[in-house]
Every structure is written in C-alpha cells, then in structure tokens.
C-alpha cells in the first residue's frame, strides 16, 4: 500500500466514478437479466459497485476509448458473482435461480448482448405503435411502485384478465421488436 501514492488512488477514484456513471445502467441491466425479480437489483448493483471499487486495481483497461465497454465486461464478471452470492444467501427461498443456471444465463447474455441491446432500443418505438390505452396499461404496470395487482384494483379489473391482456401486449411488443431488428439487419 505504501507503494501506491495517495494521489494515484484519487485519480483512480475519479476514473472509476466516471466509468461507473457512464456504464451503471448497462451493469444494472446485466444484473437484472440474471434475476427474475427486479426487487433486489438495486441491492446487488450497490454491492457490485463497492466490489468493483475494491478490485479496481485489477482492472487494466482504464477506459481505453477503442474498447469503451471493456469496463462493463469486467464489472459484469463481478456482478455475476454478486448475483450468485445474493441467491446463495436466499437459497432457502425456492424462487431463486440455481448457480448453474445463473452461469448459463450470464454466458448467453454475453453471447447475445448485441441482439438484446438492439431489441431493448427498439422497445420504445414499438411501445409507440400500441394504441394509447394499451400503451398506458403496459407502462402503468411497470411503473415504479406499481404492480399488476395494484393496477387491477385501481381500474376495477380482475387481475387474471389484466394478465391475459398484458401477456398479449408483451407478445405483440416482442414481435414488433423482432421485426424491427430484422429490418435493420437487412438494410
């Protein structure tokens, strides 16, 4: 530690913060992909960020402009293990993925990153193509602090009916997203 001058650590910190600020959302998305519930994503993200800082010396890329996402790849390795340890702590809760599946999912996310990213970007345009009321519905159930049960109660609908509608709308969105990236790919 004595070899590391204090000001280096401060420089590192500035670099780290700017990288994290830039890529926070991508890391968060990666974490969310490995967990079926969005509730714990913030917690795991926080633990991942702390661990990234603790291990930042091992990150060798230092933000190479030709490799803008190498930080994400490096951080995602840490994120993967943070997801695993979070799941392990809750292994008694049977609604968490097994370790083997988390690894398989993480590998698939890496392999399919570009496709998933293009699909994600197409979602906004596809939401715009839905009739206004359907768009409102989809957005409202995914709004912060809202759930399908809440929306069902507020609109006086049966949750089961709402799920049916939602699943149909999501299916529609997935098809739209797929169409859009197919068109983009062929252009």
């Amino acid at each position: 530690m004595a070899d590391t001058p204090n000001h280096d650590r401060q420089d590192d910190y500035a670099t780290f913060v700017s990288l994290l600020a830039r890529y926070d959302q991508q890391i968060r998305r990666f974490i969310a992909m490995l967990m079926h519930s969005s509730d714990a994503v913030d917690d795991v993200m926080q633990e991942t960020a702390i661990e990234c800082w603790n291990k930042f010396e091992t990150f060798t890329g230092q933000g190479d402009p030709d490799e803008p996402e190498e930080f994400v790849r490096w951080a995602n390795v840490i994120a993967r293990y943070k997801v695993l340890s979070w799941q392990r702590d809750r292994a008694r809760d049977r609604l968490v993925f097994q370790e083997e599946l988390v690894h398989l999912l993480a590998d698939t996310v890496h392999d399919e990153w570009d496709r998933l990213e293009s699909e994600r970007q197409a979602v906004q345009a596809c939401l715009q193509k839905l009739p206004p009321r359907q768009r409102q519905l989809v957005l409202s159930v995914h709004s912060p602090g809202q759930s399908v049960a809440d929306v069902a109660r507020q609109t006086g609908q049966k949750p089961r009916r709402l799920y049916t509608v939602l699943n149909g709308l999501r299916k529609q969105l997935l098809l739209c997203v797929q169409d859009r990236i197919t068109v983009q790919a062929s252009q």
Binding site: M33, S38, E119, L174
Partner: peptide, 10 residues
C-alpha cells in the same frame, strides 16, 4: 432473456 429484456426496457 428476451422477455426479461423487454420487461426491463418497459
């Protein structure tokens, strides 16, 4: 993953 991706994007 695609479905989860959609949920997140929404």
């Amino acid at each position: 993953l695609r479905a989860n991706n959609l949920h997140q994007a929404i």
